[in-house]
Simulated assay, not measured.
Amino acid sequence: MKTRILTTALLVFCSFIACFAAITGLNGKWAGSVKITQDDELPLVYNFKVEGDKLSGTVLSPDGNDLPIADGVLQGNEFAFTVKAGKYTINHTGKYYGDSVIVAADLEGKTFKATLKRDK
């Protein structure tokens, strides 16, 4: 019985460590673009910083300013945060896949999705 409990505890601990190690790979600069209209694309640059289950960092605005990431949380390989851009608060959700990140930004009821790759 003790062996079974110890084995279960060890598996849970190892799973936690593996998830934590995987999501810390989100740290760093990620770039991509999002289609705003049929003809217009907006470049995106996110700089993520992972600290435990908290996510911070910046998002590069179209005018070249860094906007801080706020209320960033991580759960498994998924994350969520907000960015204030002028009078707008833009809610973001995302999923980390190791070699790419999918980010969805909700602005006034419209969702924009983008695939980001690590920026070198």
Rank of each mutant, 00 (worst) to 15 (best):
K84E: 00
Y96Q: 01
V59Y: 12
V12R: 01
N47P: 05
V45L: 15
H92E: 08
G86Q: 06
K120E: 15
L44E: 06
Y46Q: 04
F79P: 01
I5N: 07
G72N: 01
K117A: 14
A114K: 04
M1A: 13
A70W: 02
E78N: 13
F16T: 08
V12F: 07
Y96W: 03
A31T: 11
F13E: 02
G86N: 09
L55Y: 00
K54N: 07
A22N: 14
G52K: 12
K120F: 08
I17Q: 15
V50T: 02
F48N: 01
V50D: 00
K84P: 00
A18V: 08
I5V: 13
T93A: 10
G86T: 05
F81E: 06
I17M: 12
T82C: 09
A9P: 04
Q38N: 15
C19D: 15
V12H: 03
T115N: 06
K84N: 05
N27A: 00
T37S: 15
V83W: 00
G94Y: 01
A104I: 15
N47K: 11
G94I: 09
K113Q: 14
K29T: 13
C19W: 13
L44F: 06
K49Q: 14
S33Y: 10
W30S: 03
A70S: 13
R4S: 15
I69P: 00
N65H: 12
F20C: 05
R118K: 15
D106F: 04
P62V: 09
L107P: 00
F79E: 00
K87Y: 08
Y96H: 03
A21M: 08
A104C: 11
N91A: 14
L42P: 03
S56N: 12
K95W: 03
S61G: 10
A22W: 10
N47F: 04
D66L: 11
L11K: 00
L74Q: 02
T89G: 01
N77P: 04
N91Q: 13
L116F: 07
F16K: 01
A105T: 03
L60R: 14
V103S: 10
F48D: 00
V12Q: 01
K54S: 09
V45Y: 08
M1P: 04
F81R: 01
G98R: 13
G64T: 02
L67M: 13
C14L: 15
N77I: 06
F112W: 09
Y97V: 05
K2E: 15
I69E: 03
Q38W: 02
A85P: 00
F16V: 10
R118C: 03
K113I: 11
P43W: 07
N47Y: 09
K84H: 02
I23P: 01
C19I: 11
S61D: 05
I36W: 11
N47R: 11
E108N: 14
A21C: 09
T89M: 14
N65I: 09
